[in-house]
Design a binder for these strands. Structure first.
Lengths: 356, 356
DNA sequence: AATATACTTGTTTGCGCACACAAAGATACA
DNA sequence: TGTATCTTTGTGTGCGCAAACAAGTATATT
């Protein structure tokens, strides 16, 4: 095709023998068009390989887009703090394009809070929504409302298939459990006593964690590593201190060679116990580059961290929405991140490198 | 937040009591301006906090930017094929912004070829250049010419500090060697006989590889893992078949528990030997997700791959240049990628996930 | 004082698109 | 046959800026 100049709407219009407005109508599916004109335009579009000039497009439609991002309160968990920072980064990145992002926080453990904030989001009248749907039922209800109002939304972190979002951004939980298993098996050799530890939560996180554990267990089963024993402990309704206490008690009773902790917070809580009791020989695999986890990795208490990259998840969520709103670019239905293995030797390279 | 409309040049001009052209002259330091007008405009700029609208700016200037990308011939090595694919992706991505990327290939092993192609690049009169500076001396010479002509350039893959590029994109080689060591140590426990294998090349790659090896060795030294023996074998002037033969001979002579192969091509060549001779018990750590490497990883011959992400390196290189040219956005001086550890359990997640 | 010359400032067009607005064509109905 | 109504198509303006072009104002020269 013509390498020198990009095809413009005007060129397409001329080739099709219609006016630019008609082409515009076809492109944006607005207004009514005769069969004949439609056919001609479609053919011309095809022939020329027309690609809209996004620069001109955003300039021309002098519109401001509003995006609402809804995540758990970062103050309660460093994990969500990272998500928040990803949203912020994206906000700055897209400010040029007349995109305004408003972030709404809900209490991770409080369904009422979720509903309250969801209402606030609706009142904000966003053009689209980014959401970490931690609360299952409440989220579904919210999605219904969004659908009714024709507001597109993207979910991340927690997958709710019935949600039918524009896109889901996250990880393959099952497979991430397998990776955790692989790391421990690799370290321990042919046999060992393994523990899976976490705090039960009354929300979608429960399923989240279950999937990881399933992957973890199946790895050993599939590879005929029958000399490993795996015990799971799920503590219910515990605060951080309580969890730490229980783990301490547990480690005194059980003979343990390796521990898999499928949540980021429980990872450093568990690490603190191993550190305090000087049990560095126990292999520990956990999740995410939280400040405390990084510390314990440098200390040699945590052996492997699986990086879920919450910052990037949120960043991409916003970016996908912007691209969808501005450029009509369809995001992938599922964007499953690589299962990044972080160790003492490569952790710095992860901390330095930014998003992207 | 700022609900008001953004400040335009026109607004600044009105406030300063001059025409838009005068403001434009101040902003771009072009043409001559009276002291008085300058002062007024500066004050108005200050007061309004004017920020140029880059979207409108690029549209208005309607300039076509030309980027030259210079990499080794992809036909000779699958690694560079991936770089090429990254460039292609970026080319498509930025086509609508009036950016034209022309890719130039040189022969990895031929200095004359490099110089020839470098001249071609200069003749192309690019606005900026992306380059993998494999040939040390020749590259420096080329950079001097680029500097003389005021053409900004970004390097990737191979770092030449004296090059003083706008940005370097790649990995921390030393640290990547350490990661390789960590993986092997983790697998083998407290002792073992280790090999480092590669083909000597008469270019900057030689240093490249040396850095990795240095990291590899220092890991064991720093961690007092003195029961590991490490032997290096660097084959000179060998083709692929020759390398395979040498490795075969070597493995018959030596008692080997683990092998570190610091280049992507030598990785699958070595793997082919282990596969053929049924030596799967030997731990193998290599580089990159080349087709052959992926195969041998699934086969269980390769245990760990360190992902250098050549595709993403090239993609980002072009993207940085575009942002610099179009939006005056300064790229980071060093963009060192995470040292990604790929195993049988997470390799799929890397293959699925695209750039980003 | 008239004209040339440098210096400074202002006006206008177009980039490619979105969208409001206007016009033309088709159909129905009296 | 004329008018109302609906359907389809076309024209024009503005988004914010870059840059070509035009014009104005001092200063020097004859």
């Amino acid at each position: 095709m013509n390498d020198f100049r990009n095809v413009r709407i005007k060129d397409v219009a001329e080739l099709a023998g219609v006016s630019v407005a008609t082409v515009d109508r076809v492109l944006h599916k607005r207004g009514k068009i005769s069969e004949k004109a439609l056919a001609k335009v479609m053919e011309a579009l095809e022939k020329t390989g027309y690609k809209p000039n996004l620069i001109a497009s955003t300039l021309g439609s002098n519109r401001v887009f509003r995006i609402a991002a809804m995540i758990p309160d970062p103050a309660l968990d460093d994990y969500w703090n990272q998500s928040g920072s990803g949203i912020l980064k994206a906000t700055e990145e897209w400010a040029q394009y007349n995109v305004r992002v408003e972030t709404f926080y809900f209490n991770l453990y409080d369904k009422k809070s979720f509903q309250l904030v969801a209402q606030k989001v609706l009142d904000f009248k966003p053009d689209s929504v980014l959401l970490a749907p931690i609360q299952y039922q409440e989220s579904l209800q919210f999605f219904t409302q969004l659908k009714e109002q024709g507001i597109p939304y993207i979910t991340f972190n927690t997958n709710i298939t019935e949600a039918e979002p524009l896109s889901f951004i996250g990880q393959d939980l099952y497979q991430s459990g397998r990776v955790g298993a692989e790391m421990l098996a690799n370290k321990l050799g042919k046999s060992g006593n393994l523990l899976v530890l976490h705090i039960f939560e009354e929300n979608q996180n429960a399923l989240h964690v279950k999937e990881k554990e399933r992957g973890f267990r199946e790895y050993f089963a599939n590879n005929n590593l029958n000399d490993f024993s795996i015990k799971s402990f799920e503590f219910t309704n515990l605060n951080d201190a309580g969890f730490v206490r229980e783990v301490e008690v547990l480690l005194n009773k059980e003979k343990v060679d390796g521990i898999f902790v499928p949540t980021s917070k429980a990872t450093h809580l568990t690490a603190s116990v191993l550190d305090k009791t000087g049990r560095k020989e126990i292999g520990l695999v956990g999740y995410d580059l939280l400040k405390d986890n990084i510390y314990y990795m440098y200390e040699g208490v945590i052996n492997f961290l699986i990086h879920q990259n919450p910052r990037k998840q949120a960043f991409k969520g916003v970016s996908y929405l912007v691209n969808y709103l501005l450029f009509k670019k369809q995001p992938p239905v599922n964007d499953l991140f690589p299962l990044e293995i972080v160790t003492r030797e490569n952790i710095k390279s992860y901390l330095h490198s930014d998003l992207s």
